[in-house]
Amino acid sequence: MPVSKLLRKELQHTADECIDCGKCMTLCRFLAESGSPVSIALKGLASDDDVDNLSIRSYDCSTCGLCSAVCPVAAQPERMFKELRNHAQANGLFKLEQHSPLLKYEKLGRRFPFKGEFIPDGCTTVFFPGCTLPAMHPDSTRITYKILKRNDPLMGLVLNCCSKPSKMLGLKSRHEERLSTLVHHLERKGVKKILTACPNCHVTFKEFNTKLEIVSIYRKLKYLNFTPVRPKLKEVTVHDPCVTRYETEMHKDVRALLKAVGVRVVEMKHNRTKTLCCGEGGATQFYNKIYAKNWSRKRITEAHRTGVPMVTYCAGCVNFLGYNYPTAHVLDILMVKRKGIPKPVAFPFNYLNRLILRFSAR
């Protein structure tokens, strides 16, 4: 199949820059079993048929970016693997039947009755909680919105999907079309700023290069006048979602919010820029459960060593880790009085939570 200029550029960049030091391979099972980034890139440059095979193999990759984060020479192999997925979908090389639950979840998030918006006249800022936060943590989502409206009565709420799953799976054109439609709709409504609670939505909006100002809710809450609950937890360890790997201000804001309510943070070995994937990254669990579980096991092993519960700011990470290790969402810690850390919300109650929020959030 024809290889795009962008994919060839990424293959060449990795081939030119990777020094085969093995640092990424010691941390990533996918690379340990597939070969170093330079060996993969050279194979792709040697043959278009090999590019096709590599593009299918890229669905074993979590696209979490740890390889790029630990690379001493900025080879950035993560970009190569993402572009290989785009190649797979552009040329019909890899069917996404196994990923249909995720794509269906995205589709429902963009349609009634889950889709909804409350944008009053004169509104310039909207709260965009994403799909999974309202499903898994409806109380903290609702309370957060009330706090925002108390400080800004014209604050809007948009319940929609940023189409990150399509982007992650290589459906580049579909993602760009859907996100463009959403962004232009908000611009026509007079929206100037989006407050994001989901880190995936936050980074997706930022990478789209929209004129809208994209601000993390954790940055907003850090400087907002509100009274958080006094949590039962006194010590936690923070799991930084891999999508926030380079969102250094968000790392600081979350920890500052925890410190402000008297919660001490015990750091894991891999945190912030060098955080580990929870296992959900790249939707690898739909194609290679072994690799996904390997990431989860690594993350939970490090959490165990701290001896304290885990807190994160991605509802998807809570869902992926929370069944096997006590894991709370930071908004639950700040907004909701709880005696302990509940298990993640299971189907179909997650969908029910989204509907309840949709029809009660005004």
Results as ranks from 00 to 15, higher is better:
residue 77 P to M: 01
residue 61 C to R: 01
residue 117 E to K: 15
residue 46 A to D: 15
residue 89 Q to Y: 07
residue 134 P to F: 09
residue 120 P to N: 02
residue 148 L to A: 11
residue 75 A to L: 01
residue 109 G to D: 12
residue 114 F to A: 02
residue 104 K to E: 13
residue 104 K to H: 04
residue 85 R to D: 01
residue 128 F to H: 04
residue 56 I to Y: 01
residue 102 L to F: 02
residue 82 K to A: 08
residue 40 I to T: 12
residue 97 E to W: 04
residue 63 T to V: 15
residue 91 N to Y: 04
residue 51 V to D: 09
residue 116 G to P: 09
residue 54 L to K: 03
residue 36 S to N: 02
residue 127 F to S: 11
residue 121 D to H: 13
residue 32 A to K: 15
residue 149 K to W: 07
residue 34 S to P: 00
residue 77 P to N: 03
residue 42 L to R: 15
residue 124 T to W: 00
residue 71 C to L: 04
residue 87 H to R: 05
residue 78 E to A: 02
residue 49 D to R: 14
residue 141 T to H: 07
residue 111 R to K: 14
residue 44 G to I: 06
residue 67 C to W: 10
residue 114 F to K: 06
residue 61 C to L: 04
residue 149 K to Y: 07
residue 31 L to Y: 14
residue 35 G to Q: 10
residue 117 E to Y: 07
residue 138 P to M: 08
residue 59 Y to L: 07
residue 29 R to C: 00
residue 74 A to T: 08
residue 149 K to Q: 15
residue 110 R to P: 02
residue 85 R to G: 00
residue 98 Q to E: 12
residue 127 F to C: 11
residue 130 G to R: 09
residue 65 G to V: 07
residue 138 P to N: 08
residue 45 L to H: 05
residue 75 A to E: 03
residue 44 G to H: 05
residue 72 P to N: 01
residue 62 S to Y: 11
residue 24 C to Q: 11
residue 53 N to C: 00
residue 48 D to V: 08
residue 148 L to Y: 13
residue 30 F to D: 06
residue 34 S to F: 03
residue 119 I to N: 02
residue 41 A to E: 08
residue 72 P to R: 01
residue 64 C to N: 05
residue 40 I to F: 07
residue 81 F to G: 02
residue 149 K to F: 08
residue 136 M to L: 15
residue 47 S to A: 03
residue 30 F to E: 05
residue 39 S to D: 14
residue 111 R to W: 01
residue 41 A to C: 06
residue 100 S to K: 12
residue 93 L to F: 01
residue 68 S to M: 13
residue 119 I to T: 00
residue 123 C to H: 02
residue 27 L to T: 03
residue 67 C to K: 12
residue 136 M to R: 12
residue 76 Q to G: 00
residue 128 F to C: 03
residue 97 E to V: 08
residue 26 T to L: 10
residue 35 G to L: 05
residue 130 G to T: 09
residue 125 T to C: 01
residue 51 V to C: 10
residue 44 G to Q: 09
residue 32 A to R: 15
residue 134 P to V: 08
residue 82 K to N: 09
residue 58 S to E: 01
residue 86 N to R: 15
residue 140 S to I: 02
residue 138 P to Y: 09
residue 135 A to D: 07
residue 65 G to W: 10
residue 50 D to V: 11
residue 95 K to E: 11
residue 124 T to L: 01
residue 87 H to L: 03
residue 115 K to S: 04
residue 93 L to C: 06
residue 80 M to I: 05
residue 37 P to K: 09
residue 67 C to Q: 11
residue 64 C to A: 09
residue 107 K to W: 12
residue 75 A to W: 03
residue 58 S to G: 06
residue 25 M to F: 03
residue 89 Q to K: 15
residue 73 V to R: 04
residue 141 T to P: 03
residue 61 C to N: 07
residue 112 F to L: 15
